[in-house]
Amino acid sequence: MKKDRYFRLLSLAAAAAVLIVVLMGTLVTNTGSAYGCGHNWPLCNGQVIPTAQVHQTWIEFSHRAVSGIASILVVILAIWVWIRLKNVWEARFLAISSVFFIFLQAFLGMGAVVWGQSSVVLALHFGISLLSFSSNLLIAFIVCEETLPRARRIIPPLHNGMTWNFILLGIYTYIVIYSGAFVRHTESSLGCTDFPLCNGHVFPEPLISKAGVQYLHRLLALILLVWVILTLVRCLRNYQNAPSLSTILFVSLILVLLQAVSGIFIIETKMALIFLLLHALFVTGFFGLLTILVMLGLRHYKR
């Protein structure tokens, strides 16, 4: 049906728009553009469309504009999902969460501009952005399942242990991501200026320092990498009849490795912007794939 085609396109457009918002947020942070529009919101330096030629102003203004477009797409999609997929409980739940997270994300961004925020809240802002993207990615996944010709609902034959493994892996990943955002917002990205050592030492000296903050993030990321590898190996051995799981995990592993490589290049290039953006892109994609695994696991658990 033609309407279903538009439905799929809107779901993909909403997910893509939120992804762009996440990346533009990273661009704003790493170009020092957070106050490109001053302490004004929703106006930019008191203007609807800024006239200043400073690039930080246009980066922040563009971020706000894209966020506004993404919010409109998310709301329209949520209403359409509520009407078209009224019998799919996952879709309705995600429709509500997508709207909630996109506006919570906007509120935290506004608060950071108007009132100023601590590094903890700024890190949380990135975490909320990931939840916003993941909600819309899951909606797009469900919409394609429900509307594509010959598509079918995926319910892999998982044991409860693997379902809980996906859930705990997702929670742990969120913690790792939060630690990475905290590294950035405490200006600890170059706390360790080399890799794999930390300023020439196996352990940072002193431990309670910017080097210690980055070292903790490295350690958490290493555990995450090992966890993903072990999960992939287990799926390849025990769930050969569910190739979709191994495929998602294999792509996830690639994204984790790319994220690690981009993190190394952030250090080696003294925080080159391209690697900062790639680092955010890879971790956002990885977390989105993990939420798909969690959803598939919960489907079997609830069946």
Rank of each mutant, 00 (worst) to 15 (best):
K3Y: 15
D4W: 09
A17R: 01
L23Y: 00
M24F: 10
P42G: 08
L43K: 09
L43T: 14
N45C: 11
N45F: 01
I49L: 15
A52F: 13
Q53T: 12
W58V: 06
I59V: 15
A65C: 14
A65T: 12
S67E: 01
S67V: 09
V81E: 03
W89V: 10
W89R: 15
E90A: 08
L94C: 05
S97W: 15
S98I: 11
S98D: 05
S119Q: 00
L122Y: 00
I128T: 10
I128K: 00
L138V: 06
A140H: 09
V143N: 05
E146R: 03
E146T: 04
R152I: 13
I155F: 06
I155K: 13
P157L: 04
L158K: 03
I167V: 15
Y172E: 07
Y172L: 10
F182R: 03
D194R: 07
V202K: 07
Y215H: 12
L225W: 12
N241I: 06
S246D: 05
L249Y: 01
L249N: 02
F250L: 13
V251L: 14
S252R: 07
L253M: 08
F265V: 13
K270Q: 14
K270F: 11
F275D: 00
H279A: 02
F282D: 02
G285C: 13
T291Y: 02
I292S: 06
L296D: 03
L298D: 01
R299V: 04
Y301V: 05
